[in-house]
């Protein structure tokens, strides 16, 4: 029997489906089987508290992910830029995200990456920054000048005080799954300005 695909609805449809299905299966179902670090971790990973989870919901509905990624790529430039006090930030790895039910890896850096921002600034700083990133008041005079002119982060002063606290609580957890900020003797400094 000679099959003429171009005359047959069934064969065209089946052919298109089968060819597609190979790649579809191998790039969605197979990866978590071959690379279990995509969904499980051999190291302790932070479990979000209720407050932090509320923060995650705010991060989601305010769409922070459209301006901020959460991944230190495996590149020197990323590690250097998002480091802290001359310590390079370690690269992000799959296992660090296993508790992120809602992932915010992101695709666009209109603002800086936030993967390791937890602990970099005080919660007071975040408060002032969310209220108005262009003028954070007397206490943070270094935010004047160039920030005043070019920061294009929206001000989130329409969020309630509670909401800003929840959001900040979440932000402060970011990047702490790797113990990377240590002093000269190797003691962790991760709780800096919590």
């Amino acid at each position: 029997m000679k099959i003429d695909v171009e005359k047959s609805l069934l064969w065209t449809a089946t052919g298109a489906f089968l060819l597609f299905a190979v790649g579809a299966a191998l790039t969605t179902i197979v990866p978590p089987m071959v690379s279990p670090e995509m969904w499980k971790s051999d190291y302790p990973v932070h479990e979000y508290t209720e407050q932090e989870q509320r923060g995650i919901q705010i991060y989601l509905s305010e769409g922070c992910v459209y301006c901020h990624t959460q991944q230190i790529r495996h590149l020197d430039s990323d590690k250097r830029r998002y480091g802290w006090r001359l310590v390079d930030a370690p690269e992000s790895e799959s296992w660090e995200y296993v508790n992120d039910r809602i992932n915010f890896l992101g695709t666009k850096r209109t603002g800086p990456d936030l993967a390791r921002v937890g602990g970099k600034y005080s919660s007071e700083w975040h408060w002032a920054h969310f209220k108005d990133p262009r003028n954070m008041g007397e206490k943070f005079p270094n935010r004047k000048g160039v920030y005043e002119k070019v920061s294009i982060m929206p001000s989130f002063d329409y969020l309630t005080d509670e909401e800003i606290k929840d959001l900040t609580a979440y932000i402060q957890t970011l990047g702490r799954n790797k113990n990377w900020r240590v002093d000269k003797d190797g003691n962790p400094l991760n709780d800096y300005e919590k």
Binding site: G23, T27, S92, Y97
Partner: peptide, 27 residues
Amino acid sequence: WVISFVYVWTGAHHMLHGPSPHWLQTV
């Protein structure tokens, strides 16, 4: 016929250098 086969494999190129398996990125 080529597009039906090759297009679907490319999703992971959004994660190059990122936290996803290296082999998947290469594919």
